[in-house]
Simulated scan of single mutants.
Amino acid sequence: MSDDYDTPWKDALTRYFPEFIAFYFPAAYRAIDWALPHVFLEQELAQVVHDAEIGKRRVDKLVRVALLDGADEWVLVHVDVQGNYDKSFAERIFVYNYRIYDRYRRPVASLVVLADGSATWTPDGFSYSVLGCAMGIRFPAAKLSAFAPRLEQLLGDENVFALVTAAHLLTQQTRGQHVQRRDAKFRLARLLYERKWDKQRIIDLFSVIDWMMYLPPEFETQLMDDINSLEKERGMPYMNSFERRGLERGREEGREEGRKEALSELLSRQLEKRFGQLPQPIRDRLKQAGPADLEHWGETLLDAPTLDHVFNRC
């Protein structure tokens, strides 16, 4: 099973947004007035980029914030966590930034976290010029692989996203190495239990780490036995049996949702390659469909003469 990054990043970013900005973009953090509420604009972002490829291994957030200097009543922060190399990524950031500005006529800051495995891919802007006219964007980008030499420092950092970054790096380093991953995951769990954090924060962060660092069932059982022993040793039963079942159920539901998103995205691309741009009702139907329907339509596509034939045969 491939490692799942999409859901844990979304959860952590939403729950601990100020710490996310503080860790990856400290200059931006110092400019934002955190005494005023920040507002996530989920539906608004979806409408702005409704025809974009937002799917597996990509995370987008649009957040309304206020600045300390008071020059603008509020501005928009577009955050993108990119999980894989994409040659058109910088151009897409440019397009998203302009679309958001075009909708709200407010300043827009695009902040990028690069969570891919490449050591050399570091996009930080897009531009073009023609006939004396220049257009483009420069954006700050935090490269997670650049934190690898500082892994031990991350493990001692009190910021939530220091541990999230460490979990991300350890997930990549232990891919296919179940014993090493079990040990790394237990080390992270121990660090969580050593923090002077409230119970909910520890459960939230363990959920992110657990989701990110998948283990086969037999190794997961060993890990949970070790965590049970740790809780008894410290007298800190953070997760009772009900919470553990909820965590496991949430993980499986998230993986199922991720599988559905991946199938939907793949089928959309295949349909567009075969029949051209898809009508909005078809796009909506693909988003709402379950894995069984998506798989069936994918099989029907193989010999369907028209787009209508793909869906009418169901």
Rank of each mutant, 00 (worst) to 15 (best):
L267R: 02
G132F: 04
W74P: 06
K273F: 10
P237S: 05
G235V: 04
R99Y: 05
P37N: 10
L45T: 00
P291W: 00
V310M: 05
D308P: 04
L114R: 07
L36C: 09
R103L: 12
S264D: 05
P237I: 05
G117F: 07
R64L: 11
R234G: 14
D6C: 12
Y98S: 06
A162W: 07
G136R: 09
R245W: 13
T165N: 07
H309L: 13
D4T: 14
G136H: 12
S241F: 13
S207G: 15
V81N: 00
A119E: 15
V48G: 00
R138S: 10
P291R: 09
L247I: 10
Q288E: 00
I137Y: 08
D204K: 09
E256V: 10
D124R: 13
E233A: 07
R175V: 13
Y85M: 08
E220I: 03
T14Y: 12
E19A: 15
E299F: 11
P107L: 01
E252K: 14
H309Q: 15
G254T: 09
Q277L: 12
L286N: 01
R187D: 09
Q82K: 03
Q172T: 09
I209H: 00
Q82S: 03
S2E: 15
F126W: 12
F242V: 14
K87D: 05
E256R: 13
N159F: 10
F40W: 04
Q153S: 15
V208I: 14
G235Q: 07
I282V: 10
Y101Q: 03
P8S: 12
W121A: 05
N240M: 11
N240Q: 11
V108A: 03
S88A: 15
Y214N: 05
W211Y: 14
A146D: 14
F186K: 08
D3M: 12
N228H: 11
A292I: 10
F219V: 04
L155K: 05
K260R: 07
G176W: 04
Q280W: 14
S127T: 04
A289R: 02
Y16K: 05
D198L: 10
L192I: 08
F89S: 01
H178S: 11
E243L: 13
I93F: 02
A289N: 01
L169K: 01
I32R: 03
R103A: 13
K10R: 15
V164N: 08
W211L: 13
R187S: 14
D183N: 06
K287G: 09
A22H: 10
H296S: 08
G83K: 01
P305Y: 05
M212S: 06
K87E: 11
V160I: 09
R181Q: 01
S88H: 08
Q82P: 02
G235T: 09
R269S: 10
Y16R: 04
R190S: 09
R285P: 07
D102E: 14
Y24D: 00
F147M: 13
K199T: 14
R244T: 12
A166V: 10
A189Q: 06
A115E: 03
N240S: 13
R313T: 07
L76F: 06
L62N: 06
Q200G: 11
A262T: 05
L163T: 08
A166R: 03
S241V: 12
R245Q: 15
Y29G: 06
L230P: 00
